[in-house]
């Protein structure tokens, strides 16, 4: 009984995770500039990947595998913001990106010689 419930929960979590990943990729294509795209990729992407791993943990009925999946989730949640942060920082160092509302990011002036676009 309880194992059936676990499997059904796992199914829902799996589809939910896949949906979030799909939304993340749609966001990366639809959103207008790098930073907003990064919101979609880092948040929806991490949650989507994490939910799929959670579905593995729920449906495998093996404590060792479940633990590995949970460790994978923790790892994913730790690394995704670091990756996004590094990329945002790299991009911020080489460009002054004009944002949608017209405010210009001039946090550092030393690399302003050549906007990339």
């Amino acid at each position: 009984m309880i194992t059936d419930l676990l499997v059904y929960t796992g199914c829902v979590v799996l589809v939910l995770g896949a949906a979030f990943t799909l939304i993340a990729s749609i966001g990366v294509v639809r959103l207008p500039d790098l930073y907003t795209r990064m919101h979609a990729a880092s948040k929806a992407g991490a949650v989507g990947g994490g939910l799929v791993l959670l579905a593995v943990a729920l449906t495998c009925f093996d404590a060792g595998v479940a633990l590995r999946a949970v460790v994978g989730i923790v790892f994913l949640l730790l690394t995704t913001p670091v990756g996004a942060h590094l990329l945002a920082r790299a991009n911020h160092h080489i460009t002054d990106q004009k944002l949608n509302d017209g405010s210009i990011t001039q946090l550092k002036s030393r690399n302003r010689r050549n906007p990339q676009r």
């Binding site: 979030f20 939304i23 993340a24 749609i26 966001g27 639809r30 959103l31 207008p32 500039d33 930073y35 907003t36 919101h39 979609a40 948040k43 929806a44 991490a46 949650v47 989507g48 949640l77 944002l99 949608n100 509302d101 405010s103 990011t105 946090l107």
Partner: peptide
Amino acid sequence: ELALSAVRVAIVVLTPNLKSALHPEIVA
């Protein structure tokens, strides 16, 4: 907060009129 943020980003991404939903800004 993570669950909330993923849902909120998903809503923004799926908004038909993207321009009105976005107000990107850099805050110090």
